[in-house]
């Protein structure tokens, strides 16, 4: 069987049924706009401060956009039992999970573009390393999608998915170096910051946009890839244990 046919069908179905719905598109636009505005006003750094804020806002947009949608759509489909239809088809669980996350990844990457486009209206972004920015955006979207999937598989209700997602996402806002450097955190919180994948994504974005970062870019990419792999296989294992038990 040609694996790409069901994979692409699931992706385009999810796009049509969930991601390209007007409320989600407006969420994708309004959310980064609100975050950028809020941090810009709070920082008091003037127009020049936008560049400093851009990595954090971009990472945040991807994280929230991706995890919100995926956790809810998977939980909703499981609840309505339409997910069973996917489990009954002759595609491997790995392919199915990749197909389900690919929509969220694309949505997350699209969310990353919004703050950049907004920043372009005010500042010169010619110094940004776009290949590195793209790599960072994709890796944050992938790791966020797998985090969302991990949450979706762990819960059974849509509201639980939202609540559980927030327990993971909001600490990341403060711990992952999005707006405050990890080095400025209290010493006892730093190990937690280094245990969260978005820390490395935000660092990669910082390097792409500002040219500085805590770690070497290849180190960040390797760690993020490692997180993606571990989360993906953990989720697949969880699906087997919980949904095909």
């Amino acid at each position: 069987m040609k694996t790409w046919i069901p994979l692409f069908a699931i992706l385009s179905k999810d796009m049509k049924a969930y991601y390209l719905k007007p409320p989600n598109i407006s969420w994708g636009l309004i959310f980064p706009f609100a975050w950028t505005g809020m941090f810009f006003i709070r920082s008091g750094g003037g127009i020049g401060g936008i560049m400093e804020l851009l990595p954090g806002v971009t990472a945040l947009s991807i994280l929230f956009g991706t995890t919100s949608m995926l956790a809810v759509t998977v939980t909703f489909e499981k609840k309505s039992r339409s997910f069973d239809r996917l489990l009954l088809s002759p595609i491997t669980l790995e392919t199915l999970m990749l197909a389900k996350t690919s929509g969220a990844i694309l949505f997350g990457v699209a969310n990353a573009v919004v703050p950049v486009l907004m920043a372009m209206l005010f500042i010169d972004v010619s110094g940004v390393s776009w290949p590195l920015f793209a790599a960072a955006a994709i890796l944050i979207a992938v790791v966020s999608a797998f985090l969302g999937l991990f949450v979706a598989v762990a819960v059974s209700e849509v509201f639980e998915a939202q609540t559980f997602s927030n327990f993971i996402r909001f600490p990341m806002v403060f711990l992952c170096g999005l707006f405050f450097p990890v080095q400025s955190l209290p010493v006892f919180l730093r190990p937690l910051a280094y245990a969260l994948p978005v820390t490395y994504g935000a660092d990669l974005l910082r390097r792409a946009i500002l040219g500085t970062g805590m770690m070497n870019q290849w180190m960040n990419i390797s760690i993020l890839t490692g997180y993606c792999t571990v989360l993906f296989f953990l989720t697949v294992k969880n699906v087997r244990r919980r949904w095909i038990s």
Binding site: M1, K2, I5, P6, A9, K13, R85, S89, P90
Partner: peptide
């Protein structure tokens, strides 16, 4: 059509 695609139909 979606269900057909799940079984690899063109």
């Amino acid at each position: 059509a979606f269900c057909g695609a799940l079984y690899g139909m063109g």
